[in-house]
């Protein structure tokens, strides 16, 4: 069933129940996001960037978790929304090793795009920069991970799970110390990764790199 919703004053048609974030993006309305992967349910709603305001609901909601319904009125560009998005981005940057020129993701990095869109500097003022140790996780034979670039969007492990049903990638640690770890007990375990590397492709930043040679 097709429904009509209004986003930023524009009437849009969409399939009832489809994902609000996707509907916005498909219609050329920019809504910041990092962790959403179309088609992979349920969304982790982890990055907390895709906030919008819905009329009738008093607090901003993450659009990646909202199924559209008829008559929905959406605002993507309110002060409250932007404040939360900037805050989230600044948090991500405060734990980020900003060293773009030495990063392979330079110029196609989601953080750079978001910073431009939200008009936030890459060095968040007023927040201390807190980096993790070690800087590089080299345990996996084919994949290298940079925890201080990772935004913990979980795209890599969800993609991997979706493809293979299991994954050498997992979240480890708790709280601030949570990191993506590449667990591969034996080189044979890691063998399929060499030909797949889907995780490297979906990483919105430069946190995963295929080792060469």
């Amino acid at each position: 069933m097709t429904v009509t919703l209004t986003v930023d004053g524009k009437a849009l048609q969409a399939e009832a129940g489809s994902n609000l974030l996707e509907v916005c993006l498909e219609n050329g309305i920019t809504v910041p996001n990092l962790c959403h992967l179309p088609g992979l349910e349920p969304p982790p709603a982890a990055c907390r960037l895709c906030f919008v305001e819905l009329e009738g609901i008093d607090a901003p909601v993450t659009s990646c978790t909202v199924p559209v319904s008829d008559g929905m009125v959406v605002h993507t560009d309110t002060d409250r929304v932007r404040r939360l998005q900037r805050s989230a981005l600044r948090f991500l940057l405060s734990v980020h090793d900003v060293d773009c020129k030495n990063c392979h993701a330079n110029h196609h990095c989601a953080l750079q795009d978001l910073a431009r869109f939200l008009k936030v500097g890459l060095k968040p003022r007023g927040l201390s920069i807190i980096l993790k140790e070690p800087e590089v996780d080299d345990d996996h034979p084919f994949i290298r991970h940079y925890p201080n670039r990772c935004v913990l969007c979980e795209r890599c492990l969800r993609t991997c799970h979706d493809r293979h049903g299991h994954s050498p990638l997992a979240l480890s640690g708790r709280g601030f110390d949570t990191v993506i770890r590449c667990f591969a007990d034996t080189p044979e375990d890691a063998q399929p990764c060499q030909s797949c590397a889907a995780c490297v492709d979906v990483c919105p930043v430069g946190a995963l790199v295929l080792k060469t040679g």
């Binding site: 982790p44 709603a45 982890a46 990055c47 907390r48 960037l49 805050s87 989230a88 948090f91 991500l92 405060s94 734990v95 927040l127 201390s128 807190i130 935004v151 913990l152 979980e154 979240l171 640690g173 708790r174 709280g175 601030f176 110390d177 949570t178």
Partner: peptide, 17 residues
């Protein structure tokens, strides 16, 4: 801050600040 599951940006990083 220690007990946060580490999933979302605000709780994981914000509480640390």
């Amino acid at each position: 801050q220690k007990e946060s599951c580490g999933r979302c940006t605000f709780c994981r990083i914000g509480t640390r600040h």
